[in-house]
Simulated assay, not measured.
Amino acid sequence: MQLLFLGTGAGMPSKQRNTTSTVLKLLEERGTFWMFDCGEATQHQILHTSLKPRKLEKLFITHLHGDHIYGLPGLLGSRSFLGGEEPLIIYGPTGLKNWIEVTLAVSRTHVKYPFSIIEIDEGIVFEDEQFIVEAKLLEHVMPCFGYTVKQKALAPELFIDKTDALGVPRGPLLKQLKDGRDVVLSDGRVIKSEEVTGEPRKGFKVTILGDTKYCENSITLSEDADVVVHEGTFDVETTELARLYGHSTIVDAAEVCQKANARHLIVNHISARFLSSDLNKMLAQVEDYRFPIYIAEDFAEYIWVDGDLVKQKV
């Protein structure tokens, strides 16, 4: 699992930050990536990465403010021009379907691949054998969702040295053992899966929140998350502005993670009033929290390695 930030700004693009878009790369798990929000010029940002639009499998929209959706029509059209044929599913609030359909129809944008738009309510919005995605309403100036992506338990480790010692041939029988099924060898011996495997491995949990004030649903979605992506549009000195516009400060984001017992916090959706030189001051406001806290930058990538989050250089 990797998190790649294509846009980390708030409201409108600036020289330092594009509008909001976050990518959850699941190339090892599914051979695809998922996107959360698609602000203006997101497809331009993609050009500076190794992402291939045809590999976009799911797109989750938090709310219908322009800085979260204005890049969507262009990306949908370009994905078609680039020969994408794989299906795409878009999730988001009521009104998203009408906005996309009218925009594509009026602009006569012809999308050649199958895509569907699911207008969601609170609860589980997607589940398969690998992942569960749950959504809850946050507290913004318009309906806005937060999402949590939970990977289901992974198959336990198979101890090859033990299977070799027991004479299990390499091939399909090893997969059966790894999947928890006992096998019978050609000489009649039964090899039990529990004899040659470890405990099931815990999957990761990532919470990606839309625009919001400090609220209980943010905490609920973030409970025991490995990584939380939370907006921090303002700092402590601009707390009143945060409340007025339905946003959070970096301290609000840290409080959510602390109460949720989350392991890592990445703060994004940063107001253009804050320059790169202001970021250390913002981080100083949350230096007493016991977990790692990062402020996302455009094109920053965070990789989940052996149960820990590693930031790559921008």
Score class of each variant (00 low, 15 high):
Arg181Pro: 03
Lys162Gly: 01
Cys38Pro: 00
Gly210Pro: 02
Arg243Trp: 09
Leu221Val: 13
Lys313Val: 01
Asn18Phe: 10
Ile303Ser: 13
Ser193Ala: 15
Ser78Met: 10
Ile250Trp: 09
Val149Trp: 05
Leu27Ala: 14
Thr197Ile: 14
His264Ala: 12
Met282Asp: 04
Thr148Lys: 06
Ile89Glu: 14
Gly210Ser: 05
Arg17Gly: 01
Leu76Glu: 00
Leu241Gln: 10
Glu119Leu: 01
Gly246Met: 08
Asp161Phe: 06
Glu216Ile: 08
Gly84Asp: 01
Thr8His: 04
Gly167Glu: 07
Thr109Arg: 01
Ala10Glu: 03
Leu209Glu: 12
Ala253His: 03
Ala300Gln: 03
Leu88His: 03
Gly9Leu: 06
Ile160Val: 05
Arg30Thr: 15
Gly84Phe: 00
Asp288Glu: 09
Ala10Met: 02
Leu185Ser: 11
Glu297Trp: 13
Leu241Lys: 12
Met35Arg: 12
Gln45Thr: 05
Gly92Asn: 07
Gly198Asp: 06
Phe36Met: 05
Lys136Phe: 01
Ala296Cys: 05
Val305His: 12
Arg17Asp: 04
Glu255Gly: 09
Thr220Ser: 03
Tyr302Met: 11
Phe145Met: 12
Ile160Cys: 00
Gly9Ile: 07
Gly95Ser: 05
Ser277Met: 10
Thr22Leu: 07
Val190Ser: 04
His264Pro: 00
Ala105Asp: 11
Ile303Arg: 09
Tyr70His: 14
Cys144Asn: 10
Val256Met: 06
Pro172Ser: 05
Gly210Lys: 04
Ile90His: 05
Gly95Leu: 01
Val23Ser: 04
Gly198Met: 02
Phe234Ser: 09
Val227Gly: 08
Leu96Arg: 00
Ile250Phe: 08
Lys311Pro: 12
Val314Met: 08
Lys25Gly: 02
Thr94Cys: 11
Leu47Lys: 13
Leu56Tyr: 06
Asp37Ser: 09
Trp304Cys: 06
Gln258Ser: 15
Tyr70Phe: 13
Glu85Gln: 15
Asp298Arg: 09
Pro169Lys: 04
Asp121Asn: 15
Val133Phe: 00
Glu40Asp: 03
Arg181Thr: 02
Ser271Ile: 04
Pro13Asp: 02
Gln43Leu: 10
His269Tyr: 05
Ser271Asp: 02
Asn98Val: 15
Glu194Cys: 13
Ile120Gly: 03
Asp128Arg: 08
Gly11Trp: 04
Ile124Trp: 06
Tyr294Val: 13
Ala135Asn: 01
Thr233Glu: 07
